[in-house]
């Protein structure tokens, strides 16, 4: 046996799951897709007293469009998102990012809520949530809290989710038609965690860039919204010169660490190169271009 012993509960409702979490007072872990938690258990880096397996809570798996927002149940599998026609037509940024999450056999199990709650800063979904200015719904004994990305991500692998709360829903506003978007990342091998990933969303009015959203993954403790670079695009428009200026600014704004995978200097370099690539791609896609 690899994981240390744990009590195991398989609730079928969120209320039942919350009751289990309350009972263990922070000593239990929620098991969703398991693609990050199971390795930690196998190596006994995590030894929770109990696992609350939410995989049989069917009510947490859905993709619904409502009033300009896509609502995704936290347990929605990454592969379901990748295959979803409504996601592809309304939030192609999410489709593009999902294809970069791990590998196919990871995405069949991995969930959107699990990826966000795990809060690996080099993961794709935290950057997408930030770029879309989405929200997550956290349910606990006291009811629901609705959190914006800056209220949710605290630092590496850490969120403001309480030990007796469950992330139940992800809400992603659908950008207006004609917007440009791109998710570009660099990893050593396809499917590996990105050294740097860049999410871009360009909202246009006529020929003007009304709003730019630029987020870097893997270049700091939380997904980094690069406002200084966004301002350049909003002020100077969508030209090759402004893309280069914004990319250079992005490389200054990020706060990457050095680790065994890459030095901080290399991550800054990648931020500039991939911001530029993502901006060019996003600009080509404005008004349905490719």
């Amino acid at each position: 046996m690899k994981p240390a012993p744990f009590e195991y509960h398989v609730p079928t409702t969120v209320e039942e799951a919350l009751a289990h979490l309350r009972h263990y007072g922070g000593e239990a872990k929620v098991l969703a897709g398991g693609q990050s938690l199971m390795p930690l258990l196998n190596f006994r880096l995590s030894r929770p007293a109990a696992l609350v397996d939410i995989n049989r809570i069917g009510a947490l798996s859905y993709i619904e469009e409502e009033n300009g927002t896509l609502r995704l149940g936290a347990l929605t599998r990454q592969r379901a998102i990748e295959r979803s026609d409504v996601v592809r037509s309304r939030l192609p940024l999410l489709t593009e990012a999902t294809a970069l999450v791990g590998h196919l056999p990871i995405r069949t199990r991995g969930t959107i809520g699990g990826s966000l709650a795990h809060a690996d800063p080099s993961a794709e979904y935290p950057a997408v949530l930030t770029a879309l200015e989405g929200q997550v719904v956290a349910r606990g004994a006291g009811g629901e809290r609705i959190l914006r990305p800056e209220e949710f991500f605290r630092t590496y692998l850490t969120t403001t989710l309480g030990p007796d709360e469950i992330l139940t829903e992800v809400r992603l506003p659908i950008p207006p038609p004609g917007s440009g978007w791109a998710f570009e990342e660099f990893s050593r091998r396809h499917g590996d965690f990105a050294l740097v990933g860049i999410a871009v969303l360009l909202l246009v009015e006529g020929t003007r860039c009304a709003k730019a959203r630029l987020v870097a993954a893997g270049a700091g403790p939380v997904p980094a919204r690069l406002r200084g670079a966004e301002e350049i695009l909003e002020r100077d428009g969508l030209t090759e010169q402004s893309f280069e200026a914004a990319a250079a600014r992005a490389a200054e704004l990020v706060e990457p660490d050095s680790d065994i995978h890459a030095s901080a200097a290399f991550r800054r370099h990648l931020t500039r190169v991939f911001t530029l690539r993502a901006l060019r791609k996003a600009a080509r896609r404005i008004h349905g271009g490719h």
Partner: peptide, 25 residues
């Protein structure tokens, strides 16, 4: 045993999954 190598991949309800990242239960 941590979902990287893929040698343990099986189909669960028709979909490929790492059997080292799932509990038997």
């Amino acid at each position: 045993e941590h979902g990287i190598c893929g040698a343990c991949t099986v189909l669960v309800n028709g979909e490929a999954a790492r059997s080292c990242l799932m509990l038997a239960v």
